[in-house]
């Protein structure tokens, strides 16, 4: 095993180009466990800790460019307003110690269906900034990023530099089921974002299909129902039957398995419950904000 310590992003890309099998390591959450337990012996470890700009973020007009190694703790503390769904998701990641070191780049690189950030990214809308020495930068839409169980759209010579996450234009929520009240891997997870500007709702489901997925049928149904009922404008409470059908469609969007963490049947059920609750929470928040702005006006 060789330990590569690039001092800059350019050096890192060059190293990855030269050694496409090199395994990037930043927070170490996944990679070190695999090494400690003898599950993986990469030829090269590519340390990204020395590249300072990976831990930086910029808040732009439309989106936040979030460095791949910005620790979850920083996201929770500093980006709650811009990226509320991701901030909530970050708060559910493992332990304080791991949140201090791990970042979204690791979740994306591993692309485990259980990664906590994925549902929030899917719901918010995001693009992954990947780069290679040979072909430069490309932005991969989050919807195209997850390609299989622990597989993603990266090329062997590419590294994740950042993720561009759409700034929240409405309330977002994130919910995760685990069999412990802290430090737990998701049995399943659900992210939901209201996008009042486009009058759409986006979702993300974790750990209930081979990859993180959106519940597209549920989104389409809800978008239509909200439009039809004039909900965006009248700010009415979403009718229980609409919420129920949305929840059922979210359950239907799952393709889960039975494993030691939970049954497929439970996962479908729980995703439905989380879908209904997060919809209620976000919609209540949307209505509250509308009332507040009307009150001010």
């Amino acid at each position: 095993m060789d330990f590569l310590r690039p001092a800059s992003w350019e050096e890192a890309l060059a190293a990855k180009a030269e050694h496409p099998t090199a395994v990037p390591i930043a927070g170490g959450t996944d990679v070190m466990v695999e090494i400690n337990f003898d599950h993986r012996r990469p030829e090269y470890l590519l340390d990204l800790n020395r590249i300072g700009d990976l831990t930086e973020w910029e808040v732009g007009e439309e989106s936040v460019r979030l460095g791949a190694s910005v620790p979850y703790t920083r996201i929770m503390e500093n980006l709650r307003a811009e990226l509320p769904g991701l901030a909530l998701a970050s708060h559910t990641v493992a332990s304080p110690q791991i949140r201090n070191r791990g970042g979204v780049g690791g979740n994306l690189g591993t692309a485990s269906p259980a990664g906590d950030a994925h549902p929030a990214l899917l719901a918010a809308g995001a693009e992954v900034e990947a780069e290679s020495a040979a072909r430069g930068t490309r932005l991969i839409p989050i919807d195209d990023f997850y390609t299989g169980v622990k597989r993603n759209a990266l090329q062997p010579d590419e590294l994740i530099r950042a993720v561009h996450v759409k700034k929240a234009d409405g309330p977002q929520q994130y919910s995760k089921v685990g069999t412990r009240n802290a430090m737990v891997i998701a049995v399943c997870a659900f992210g939901l974002a209201l996008h009042p500007e486009t009058r759409t709702v986006r979702t993300g489901i974790g750990s209930a299909a081979p990859t993180p997925v959106r519940a597209k049928a549920a989104e389409e149904f809800l978008n239509a129902a909200l439009e039809e009922g004039g909900f965006w404008d009248n700010g009415k409470i979403i009718t229980p039957s609409v919420a129920k059908q949305f929840a059922e469609l979210c359950s239907g969007g799952c393709n889960p398995i039975d494993d030691v963490r939970g049954t497929a049947s439970y996962r479908r059920h729980a995703v439905g419950v989380m879908a209904r609750r997060t919809l209620t929470w976000t919609w209540e928040s949307y209505r509250g904000a509308r009332r507040a702005s009307e009150g001010a006006a």
Partner: peptide, 15 residues
């Protein structure tokens, strides 16, 4: 949420 079932995972606000 720290004092609710699900804890930090934010699964219920009392529902």
């Amino acid at each position: 949420v720290r004092q609710l079932p699900g804890g930090l995972s934010n699964t219920t606000h009392g529902e």
